[in-house]
Nucleic acid binder design. Structure first.
Lengths: 218, 218
DNA sequence: GTCCACGCTGTGAAGGTGCTGAGGAACTCC
DNA sequence: GGAGTTCCTCAGCACCTTCACAGCGTGGAC
């Protein structure tokens, strides 16, 4: 599960990153509104934790723009309890849930899990690329209707590649998102797992782009 | 009997959870409107206790949406007596009964029992997955028409797995829903009980998905 | 054609994950 | 009080996954 945390207070941001990583999430942090918006557009995240007070663009604005562009990423909003901003505003803008600072970490986690279980309303529950189908809930992958058995890591890798099908994805990106960030895994691990995947889903389907990364053919 | 309590004040929520659990109900708690709505949609509860003031979506809105989707789960609404919200509003939205805070626990229980006696008109009373049948009210399980004797914990585990048949359910999720949340039970307990269940309902029916959880084959 | 950096893969070690039997604590029913 | 349940922890085992390493193959620049 990949999360995007958009928060400019660096102490809170890194506390969240550490805590959530310990729960098994892959966490990226953006420190401004524009950076967050951009990451949300391209990053293939499963949910976003979004502060309201941000440099550049407010959290409200970020959600509004995302929704206007038909991105249905689940958003959990955080706001300082200074009365200026109202919970209703956030939800009207299209956030899915709302927490007021200071908040309990346990509560954050519970809400986040609920959000992830619910998923983005308009997101197809099954990913399809060519004759490949991946069902995250059932944790099943089929290739031309034949079941493919994958290990946890292989599954996570394919999941990510399918969400970004057609794009070139660099090894660094894969290490950040499929492996735990900060795990110091050698880039060769990616090559190894790409190899495993190719044996299972078909060699030609997962192209190497020399010097840049890999691309899952659409 | 399974209840869903949707209440964001954690003290009240956990008091209700403890009290109702002591009466023999299985109680899940959701702490926001969206989370409650979602749980009500998928959880197969026998009744819902729903606060009006909730983050995310008001209790009114939750009931209205449920009814619009043809869910007829009995709903008992709770509201603070601040005059802003009116009893009539709640009932207009589709709630079945209404209590004003502060309320007596005995009254709550009495109303709740009345509600459960009435029951949801269209509710399926028995869960069926393959040749397994589980009747929550009678607390009975049969496998190919032969009765299976289960302990309380085994029953709760099978109940949850059957409600999510086909999906992969993680050990953490099982600990949260089948064991009391916050009980600090070791994940190994899940493995042990999965083992017990397998002996009783058939080994192959409950698959292990390594690194992810368990799946009850549909 | 030659060279070199990049990518691929077979091997194997290390550690992780899940299953099971044994047993202790708490509880209920005689 | 004793017998029987039930719940849960623990430790040991078997198997699987993950990943580092090293040697080989290959594409592309010249």
């Amino acid at each position: 599960m990949r999360l995007l945390v958009v928060e400019d207070e660096s102490r809170l941001a890194s506390a969240l990153q550490r805590g959530l990583a310990a729960e098994g999430f892959a966490v990226d942090v953006a420190a401004s509104g524009p950076a967050g918006l951009d990451a949300a557009r391209h990053g293939g995240y499963d949910a976003m934790i979004l502060d309201v007070m941000l440099p550049g663009l407010s959290g409200y604005e970020v959600v509004r723009r995302l929704r206007a562009e038909e991105h249905w990423l689940p958003v959990l909003m955080l706001s300082a309890k200074d009365g200026e901003y109202d919970q209703a505003d956030g939800l009207d803008c299209g956030a899915d849930d709302y927490l007021t600072k200071p908040f309990s970490y346990v509560v954050l986690l519970a809400r986040l899990r609920a959000l992830l279980r619910r998923g983005a309303p308009e997101r197809p529950t099954v990913l399809t690329v060519g004759d490949l189908r991946l069902d995250p809930a059932r944790r099943r992958v089929t290739r031309a209707d034949a079941e493919v058995a994958l290990t946890a890591r292989e599954f996570a890798l394919l999941d990510y590649l399918m969400r970004r099908a057609g794009e070139v994805v660099s090894k660094t990106e894969l290490l950040d998102h499929v492996w735990d960030a900060g795990m110091e895994t050698a880039p060769n691990a990616v090559e190894v797992y790409v190899g495993y995947l190719r044996r299972k889903i078909g060699r030609e389907r997962l192209e190497t782009v020399r010097g840049a990364g890999y691309r899952l053919a659409t």
